[in-house]
């Protein structure tokens, strides 16, 4: 079960990454895995609806201390039991050339549905968390992070 959904995600992503939209071509330099947010989300959800949910909590700085190291923590309210748990937390940097940061497949063994990491942000943007529950629902939240060369003291 776990593994299947993981592979499904990968397959779609591989196809999607060959597609690029004109707006992305005008943007910052392309990386080898360039993919925009719409395609990246679709690759995971198929056509299923994504619901913004207060069950998904994101902790990230309002202003990044360093755009190359931006700490992000996503926590989801869930009992994490065998019948009701969070299967996956996906993190996207919505304006990076490749928006995908991490696809994290959890199990009830985690106890709490949480993933923390540090991402690179090329510029000011929203970080988005997309969550898949064991019931097949997709929930999300996002937060805006400002990346600035420096302030005024």
């Amino acid at each position: 079960m776990q593994r299947r959904s993981f592979l499904r995600g990968l397959g779609l992503v591989a196809v999607a990454s060959t597609v690029s939209t004109p707006t992305m071509l005008l943007a910052a330099p392309k990386g080898p895995n360039e993919l925009n947010i719409d395609l990246a989300v679709k690759a995971i959800t198929g056509a299923k609806a994504v619901v913004k949910s207060e069950k998904v909590h994101m902790k990230a700085p309002e202003i990044a201390e360093n755009g190359a190291v931006v700490p992000v923590t996503v926590t989801v309210d869930s009992p994490m039991t065998d019948d009701d748990y969070i299967k996956a937390i996906h993190i996207f940097a919505t304006k990076n050339s490749n928006v995908r940061c991490a696809d994290v497949m959890l199990t009830p063994m985690n106890g709490i549905a949480m993933f923390a990491t540090r991402v690179k942000l090329g510029k000011s943007q929203e970080i988005m968390a997309l969550v898949e529950t064991s019931k097949g629902e997709f929930l999300s939240t996002s937060q805006s992070v400002k990346v600035t060369i420096g302030g005024c003291g």
Partner: peptide, 15 residues
């Protein structure tokens, strides 16, 4: 599954 958008010297934390 992780990507190049994670920072240099990455950290991965779960419960």
């Amino acid at each position: 599954k992780t990507w190049e958008s994670l920072s240099t010297n990455p950290v991965f934390t779960v419960n």
